[in-house]
Design a protein around this nucleic acid. Structure first.
Lengths: 147, 147
DNA sequence: CGACAATCGTTGCAAATGCAACAATTTAAT
DNA sequence: ATTAAATTGTTGCATTTGCAACGATTGTCG
């Protein structure tokens, strides 16, 4: 007995799949460069950027801003602290919170990392050419939180 | 002594980051539905789709098509086999290769999974509205393999 | 033919991940 | 004020992941 035919479906054009593949490719390039040359993982990089540009962030703040699970943030922060790139202080107003601050060494590291990220971004934009603005508009829509 | 200021950088607008976040969101929805209702993981889903629509695929074929590491493919295939959704046969022409085929039960499962995926896709397209075609064009560019 | 390289799929193992549980602290409720 | 509920960051644990090594098979080149 034959089973009924499958409905049409093209994985190659399927959006969640496409995003996963592209995200993997894009992050892999950066991840490799950072890991090899600086021993830094993607979660650590994201934490660094956040702490670098905003003062006295907490783990929870970062979790919210960067869609990074708090356990991931916590571990990334601990590693960065162990490497001397940032400092944890407990907030005196609310002692559940941490105040995270880059050390000078952390700032130096971040200043080395950013041009690499920026170059990759520039290459992508160049590759996309005309399509870039429309794509960014689309990404804006997809980034906004569920209703 | 002050450290030099950081170059400008906006993580929120950074493409690899944005893709990672969006990919995570989109896949998470599907992954949860599939895991809860069918006990199927994302790698298993991708394998199912591929085997469902093309005859006698090998592990290597799937790896190539779906940017899924061969160890991931191998494990997904084994799990699907254990659940009775597909069958492995060694290719008689080249006995290093496997010929993967869905069982009837696997076909039934896939037929249940597809509408769920399709609905999600349709919602996304609706949400994107005008931006959809341009975004797909951009994704095409980003999907193509490195030079 | 025969040695050597290449390819396929699997597996071992260390590292990364997700999730729930937890202690510490703060907030809310009665 | 006292108890209960909620929040923050950490950690334990099971699962997943990535990567290299491996056996098995096939291809290449003398």
């Amino acid at each position: 007995m034959m089973t009924a035919p499958l409905p049409e479906f093209d994985l190659e054009r399927y959006l969640p799949y496409r995003f996963t593949v592209i995200a993997g490719k894009l992050s892999a390039e950066l991840a490799k460069a950072y890991k090899v040359r600086f021993g830094i993982s993607m979660p650590e990089w994201r934490v660094l950027v956040n702490v670098g540009y905003t003062e006295d962030l907490s783990v929870r703040d970062i979790e919210r801003r960067v869609s990074l699970e708090k356990s991931k943030v916590s571990r990334a922060v601990s590693k960065l602290e162990a490497k001397g790139y940032l400092v944890k202080q407990t907030d005196s107003d609310d002692r559940r919170l941490l105040k995270l601050t880059l050390t000078d060494e952390g700032t130096r590291l971040l200043r080395a990392l950013i041009p690499i990220a920026q170059t990759l971004q520039d290459e992508l934009i160049a590759k996309l050419a005309d399509a870039a603005p429309a794509m960014n508009a689309a990404l804006d829509i997809l980034m906004e939180p569920e209703e």
